[in-house]
């Protein structure tokens, strides 16, 4: 059902030439001057017709305050990133089969990339040789990232024709745009950790604890004090192969300041290791509630060994490692990578 894309991160975004798509799209364009749009910024221009699909509604502007009216229960996802507005276009084809185009305009490219990074299963698509945008397609849904834009192009029913139309609309969204780099913070993630190798397709960038929980449940409360001013990445690492595979996770968070990182660290330790409130001297497994920066600790918990370390304004957290040494080595490797990245970044 799903064409799963495996391999290096670079291989994820296979460059595909889609030159025929320009012929598939009617030249007449839907201008973004429809009533109801914020006057300060016009909506993107998309074709009035793509193949047999005609634009029947839109662009319709959805501001943040109205996103729950548009998608009750789904809006938190976008508000968990730095979301500015959404433009919605509806196309109707034969038999009233629709194609929905949602263009989410974010504050920055990192936020748009973050939305795409939440799920990378599917066929990788490059627009403009990958220099205009990158997308992932599966079963009628194209999700793409192009600079500060994240877009969903959804065919109600997948057919060869609807796929062609979806790709053409993706091309239109990306046309004339210049793709930007992935979030710099991702470079703080090591490619390998104490016998574990990074799974490039399972690296996600986010800011919200709700998004974290949808990727990896940690707590029903915001114990890491995540928010729009933080940036975070969670990555899956794997060791072994076949039926002997073992997965572990690395979570790195960068806060606004050293003090906010320390505050979050304390909150995490108190919530996640409540037994450490009264540490037993000499146990060798008990992390102090507020260890000195750079020290951190490890602890055996219900699903393996967990590790934690405060590194300046960042937190490094490790989960599901098979032993204390592997968890500690993970922290050491991740800390070194993070510090090297901090130096090069600043």
């Amino acid at each position: 059902m799903i064409a799963r894309v495996m391999g290096r991160r670079e291989a994820l975004f296979i460059i595909r030439l889609i030159p025929f798509l320009t012929l598939f799209v009617y030249v007449d364009q839907a201008a973004g001057s429809a009533s109801g749009l914020a006057p300060r910024e016009q909506a993107m221009t998309l074709p009035k017709q793509v193949g047999q699909w005609k634009l029947v509604e839109g662009p319709r502007r959805i501001e943040p305050k109205a996103i729950f009216d548009y998608m009750d229960g789904g809006g938190e996802l976008y508000l968990g990133y730095r979301f500015r507005y959404l433009d919605v276009f509806n196309y109707a084809g034969a038999g009233d089969e629709q194609i929905l185009v949602e263009v989410y305009r974010m504050e920055g490219s990192d936020d748009a990339f973050g939305l795409l990074s939440l799920d990378r299963d599917g066929e990788a698509i490059g627009f403009g040789r990958g220099e205009s945008g990158q997308g992932i397609y599966g079963a009628g849904l194209l999700r793409l990232w192009s600079g500060d834009i994240y877009a969903r192009v959804l065919a109600e029913r997948e057919t060869p024709q609807s796929r062609q139309a979806v790709m053409a609309l993706g091309e239109s969204v990306c046309r004339g745009r210049r793709q930007t780099a992935q979030p710099a913070f991702l470079k703080a993630l090591p490619a390998a950790l104490s016998g574990f190798r990074l799974e490039p397709n399972r690296v996600s960038y986010f800011r919200s604890y709700l998004v974290l929980n949808s990727l990896y449940f940690l707590s029903n409360e915001n114990i890491l004090k995540l928010g729009l001013k933080t940036e975070a990445a969670i990555a899956s690492y794997v060791s072994g192969s076949g039926g002997q595979q073992k997965r572990a996770r690395l979570l790195e968070i960068r806060y606004e300041s050293d003090s906010s990182a320390l505050s979050a660290y304390r909150s995490f330790l108190a919530a996640y290791f409540p037994e450490t409130k009264s540490p037993k001297a000499g146990s060798g497994q008990v992390a102090k509630a507020t260890p000195p920066a750079g020290k951190g600790g490890t602890r055996k918990v219900e699903d393996g060994w967990a590790g934690h370390r405060l590194v300046g304004r960042s937190l490094v957290l490790a989960f599901e490692f098979p032993s204390e040494p592997t968890a500690r080595l993970c922290l050491d490797t991740a800390t070194e990578q993070l510090q090297n990245w901090e130096k090069s970044h600043e």
Partner: peptide, 18 residues
């Protein structure tokens, strides 16, 4: 944050194991 309502991954794993 209300400490009485915090439910962590560890709590979940314990309840699942039970």
């Amino acid at each position: 944050m209300s400490k009485t309502t915090v439910f962590t991954r560890r709590d979940f794993l314990r309840s699942t194991a039970a």
